[in-house]
């Protein structure tokens, strides 16, 4: 224990401070984290996704996601040129255990990881009757578990299907963008565990974040742009058939 603690002192400064406090059992003292310095989002580099389901498993382990519900999941699209508007989509158990092998044929196949888009103008927080869900000052859509009524209005209002009611806690849950990790200088569990870098946590307020260069040089799209939700999950090279 002492050995590890000594080593942690030379970690990236924010993470080190956080870890120190986490290990000392006083996480409240942890980070030099300033909310106003961040505006979080996610880059999803669609062509890099191999559908391994690592992100889904990591999210489940990190966040105690109940069986049958998902804070992130992976969809596999199969688009044939006769039927561009009606792709065949599967996501067995959210892609947690990968996908059955796809055979080469006329159509194209690809994977699309899904998660909360952490919308800046989020329709889900708009409808919450009591202020139990909100966009945090650092741009993360969060739920106050101890205040949520469990009315499920937010679940109805999310265009992306990202929310669910926890069957045991009876309150709404969703991706927190691993708020407990990003405020300690770590990346999210899904990003940490994506083997191909298909997911990258981005901080739009950090001028050094590679996202700025990426957005300038790539075709980036958000899901359902017609919903005008200010989504902050940026999809690189997203196929037009994705819903």
């Amino acid at each position: 224990m002492n050995v590890s603690r000594r080593y942690f002192m030379i970690l990236v400064p924010a993470a080190a401070v956080a870890w120190e406090s986490v290990l000392a059992g006083t996480p409240e003292d942890s980070p030099n984290y300033k909310m106003q310095d961040h505006w979080w989002g996610m880059l999803i580099d669609t062509p890099k996704c191999i559908g391994c389901g690592n992100c889904v498993r990591a999210c489940e382990a990190e966040n105690d996601v109940p069986e049958g519900f998902f804070r992130t999941w992976v969809e596999r699209y199969h688009v044939t040129d006769e039927n561009m508007e009606n792709p065949e989509v599967i996501s067995p158990e959210g892609g947690k255990h990968g996908f059955p092998a796809a055979k080469e044929d006329e159509g194209k196949y690809f994977f699309v990881p899904k998660m909360c888009n952490h919308c800046a103008d989020s329709p889900c927080t708009q409808v919450c009757p009591v202020g139990a869900t909100f966009v945090s000052p650092d741009g993360v859509v969060l739920i106050d578990q101890s205040y949520c009524l469990g009315c499920a209005y937010c679940v109805q209002a999310c265009p992306y299907g990202c929310r669910y009611i926890n069957p045991e806690k009876h309150s709404a849950e969703k991706c927190t963008l691993c708020y407990h990790r990003i405020t300690k200088g770590l990346t999210t569990a899904c990003c940490e565990n994506c083997p191909t870098g298909a997911r990258q946590l981005v901080d739009l307020k950090n001028p050094k974040d590679p996202i700025h260069a990426f957005l300038k040089t790539h075709s980036v799209q958000v899901l359902k742009p017609q919903m005008a939700t200010g989504a902050k999950a940026f999809y690189n090279e997203l196929d037009g058939s994705v819903r």
Partner: peptide
């Protein structure tokens, strides 16, 4: 296809 969280009605 349903988004996985949509299967159960709220």
């Amino acid at each position: 296809f349903m988004y996985p969280n949509e299967v159960e009605l709220q």
